[in-house]
Design a protein around this nucleic acid. Sequence first.
DNA 1: ATTATCGTGTGATTTGGATCACACGGTTTT
DNA 2: AAAACCGTGTGATCCAAATCACACGATAAT
Lengths: 187, 187
Amino acid sequence: MAPLRQHIEEIAPLTDAEFDQVQSFFTLKKVRKHQYLVNEGDEVKYEYLVLSGIYRVFYVDDQGKEYIVQFAKAGWWMSDYEAFFKQGKASMFIECLVAGEVFYATLDAREQLSKELHQMEHFFRVKLTNGYVAQQQRIKLLLSSTPQQRYEAFARLYPDLLQQVPKKLIAEYLGVSRETLSRLYAG
Amino acid sequence: MAPLRQHIEEIAPLTDAEFDQVQSFFTLKKVRKHQYLVNEGDEVKYEYLVLSGIYRVFYVDDQGKEYIVQFAKAGWWMSDYEAFFKQGKASMFIECLVAGEVFYATLDAREQLSKELHQMEHFFRVKLTNGYVAQQQRIKLLLSSTPQQRYEAFARLYPDLLQQVPKKLIAEYLGVSRETLSRLYAG
DNA sequence: ATTATCGTGTGATTTGGATCACACGGTTTT
DNA sequence: AAAACCGTGTGATCCAAATCACACGATAAT
């Protein structure tokens, strides 16, 4: 649980007693490659904090095409957040691409911890603030940029993922076809 | 200031004393049509809570094309949030489309109120949660949908804006050309 | 060892939407 | 009242990226 504490304390310092309380809401889980943490149609009981490994949060349209909403690596949170927050059914899948470990916790954990510990509400607010800004940048990119620019932005932001993730999946994240993406760094 | 109180208390009840404290950070401002609240390059000192009127948050690319990141109407918050949170220069404009009034406050206000009043930190967390989910839906739409589907989703979500805002601007929000949008409901 | 499957590159063809161009009625301006 | 501008529709053309198709080496499966 030490990494959990460190992760939180980068934003919100906690006493030992407080961290014990936090800790009690989180469970550690090992995840194998190709394992799914969430499937479309599931109740989304948990959100996940990645300790290690790589994951993709994606959905599938009626024609079977896949679109990646989020990658996740160490230190990132992930879930089908729409379903998680509204406690509805998943419209997305979460798949493990590289084996690793995650912490998971319920919405109740988030809400109770936020209520009982002002520090934890602060922590979640700061995380959401960062996530909000990151998503807004993504929206701007999707609205106005060429495949070229999207690829460059991705390479700048996530050089590590560029190495570890098949290009096909990067294309699914960028909203570009596999072939077009391939031609970007060839030409 | 009554509408401000009501707006906050939908999420986080406050005592009179607490609200006084909150209130002291907000200022009311009348806004005329075509008035700009933020210009590209500005220091973004404020975020805005809309009381009335309609506003657009947009940016302009190197070719002069405009893209709308957000519309805002009564009860919505707006700013160039990336610049606001990071206290950097604006990359966007905020323009008033229909005259009205806004409250505004600084980042300091948000941070201090969050620190001093657990309730306010809760309020902001809930707002960010909703904003995060809404943005994620937008990302999904931009990634996978046709102009047709985007238009339909917009019409479903914001039937009022569809009436009050020129189609050209709706096209800029959807990431579609004016002409294509026009042909959607003709065909 | 041989056969699938996966990741990737690359050519040929198609196509949806952007762009360009113009029309026309409704406001606002002078 | 004439002139300029705005919002909107619509036809013609163009083009960037999707789609279709195939190749080929590398990894995984039988």
